[in-house]
Amino acid sequence: MNPGEVSIYHWPQMPALPPAGRSVLVRVSTDDTRAVARKQVRSALGKILANWSGLAAVELPLLETEQGPVWRGCLAGASLDISLSYAANEGWLALCRGAAVGVDAMVIGVFPEMVDVARLYLGPAVVDSLTQAADPAEGFAQAWTAREAYLKCLKRGLVEWSPAEILLPVEWFSVTLEDATGLVVAMATGSHICQDAMIML
């Protein structure tokens, strides 16, 4: 997906219900403690879903699971997938109807084993790009968030990169925020991924 095709809503700006297969990304300014941040993001999530579904907050078929909140059932004729991420007093909320979505945010920063981590988990193509990048830290953050967003979209945990890995087709969105947060946000949307498969039994 092109950057222009994804609108970032800054909460409390209310996003419109997206058409099936399209994602919306909501940025929520949060407290610096993770616990409070999660509550604030969930509050925003509840209000958005209440607005979209016309249900009262207590009636929302939201289920808290190990992977985060899950919308039970359909919304306007399609499933709804939710993905959350937190970084630097920012909560990120990705919502997608009729497809799986994963979002990940990370503060751009330098750490000594960056290339080694990239080699192990992101693959040689990323290592190659990092060694040539003008700003390797930003490059790493972009690649890492993309990887995590992809895995979240597939509801999988972190795994080492493998040349035999089959990358499933997903649509990408990645942005480096041009503000003081130094944040990179990536979102992956997989329209082929069945909603049934995403919920742990």
Binding site: V70, R72, I199
Partner: peptide, 25 residues
């Protein structure tokens, strides 16, 4: 578990409905 059964099948499982929690699966 929450589920939906399509006309003539199949069955779609949609997750837990009660107060059990899942920790690391």
């Amino acid at each position: 578990d929450l589920a939906r059964i399509d006309p003539g099948g199949p069955v779609h499982c949609l997750g837990r409905a009660d107060n059990q929690v899942k920790i690391r699966g």
